[in-house]
């Protein structure tokens, strides 16, 4: 008699690689070939996986077409099989898969659009924390500001891309009737996704705002975060000047006051931790 583990391993091979021979030898026929019975499970697996990917990545399916997406999702499943009993994790590595699969092709931007889609899922299901009451700043001495830690709300992500992914995302929603022409070499995107009540809001951030928020997401205090954002802004503006391309409007100069005001106005912060409290 085969051990339970050997039976489960044979079942796994039958579903994943289509090699049902080992499993078929221990399945009762009852009028239907064991291979045919095993095929029912293989089909179920493919149907459930595809439906889950379609629900997570409808924009990618629309961009690539349903035949391409079906094939891409199947290849993804082979390369990155599910590692969780919770189906909602199934598409977590799809942006990485697309980045490798489509690198150097005209469709390389699919990976960044997929990253936006996955960030959308994470924001939908993240912990709810109310925005901080900015009155807490009144109790803090101005000389301590640079050591303040701004902790972003959990239901928030930033996705950056050299492609205009927010425009692509909006134009390719399942209900969109027609798709306007979008130049892939137009402005890059720095997209803030933030949950507000029962929906996720997506909006473009300035270069400085994006860099500052990403520093905050790493737990960097305000002074060091602003210095890093300023350096990042200068580096990107310099690269754009050398390349003779346009940087994003208003991106050449980092204005900490303006970025701070924008990010706080967007209610991105859950907590401001004063220096003496520590993390």
């Amino acid at each position: 008699m085969r051990s339970l583990r050997d039976t489960q391993s044979a079942f796994s091979a039958a579903i994943r690689s289509g090699d049902g021979g080992s499993l078929a030898s221990c399945v009762v026929a009852h009028g239907i070939a064991p291979e045919r019975r095993i095929q029912i499970y293989r089909n179920n697996h493919q149907i459930v996986a595809l439906a889950t990917m379609q629900a997570t990545y409808p924009v990618i399916e629309r961009l690539g077409g349903s035949d391409w997406f079906r094939q891409s999702a199947a290849q993804y499943r082979e390369e990155y099989p599910s590692r969780s009993g919770d189906l909602q994790h199934l598409g977590d590595r799809y942006p990485d898969f697309l980045r490798a699969a489509l690198a150097g092709t005209a469709h390389a931007y699919f990976a960044d659009v997929a990253a936006l889609a996955w960030a959308y899922q994470l924001v939908l299901t993240a912990e709810e924390r109310a925005p901080v009451d900015l009155a807490v700043l009144r109790a803090i001495a101005p000389q301590d500001y640079e050591r303040l830690v701004f902790m972003p709300r959990p239901a928030l992500r930033v996705v950056e891309s050299e492609f205009p992914i927010l425009a692509i995302w909006r134009a390719n929603q399942p209900a969109a009737q027609s798709v306007p022409e979008i130049r892939l070499d137009a402005n890059p995107s720095r997209v803030l996704l933030i949950r507000r009540n029962d929906h996720v809001e997506l909006r473009e951030l300035s270069l400085g705002g994006s860099l500052l928020l990403q520093q905050w997401l790493r737990g960097v205090p305000l002074g060091a975060a602003a210095a890093a954002a300023m350096a990042g802004t200068a580096a990107i503006a310099g690269t754009a000047a050398v390349a003779g391309t346009a940087a994003m409007p208003g991106s050449a100069v980092f204005d900490v006051q303006s970025c701070l005001s924008d990010l706080l106005g967007l209610e991105t912060i859950a907590e401001i931790v004063p220096p003496h409290t520590g993390l």
């Binding site: 008699m1 085969r2 339970l4 583990r5 039976t7 489960q8 391993s9 079942f11 796994s12 579903i15 994943r16 221990c26 499970y41 179920n44 697996h45 459930v48 996986a49 889950t52 099989p81 599910s82 590692r83 969780s84 009993g85 189906l87 199934l90």
Partner: peptide
């Protein structure tokens, strides 16, 4: 529904042993 860390996200039958 899983073996060797890979999940099939299905309710697969057990041998009744």
């Amino acid at each position: 529904g899983s073996v060797n860390g890979i999940h099939f996200n299905d309710l697969l039958p057990l041998p009744l042993t």
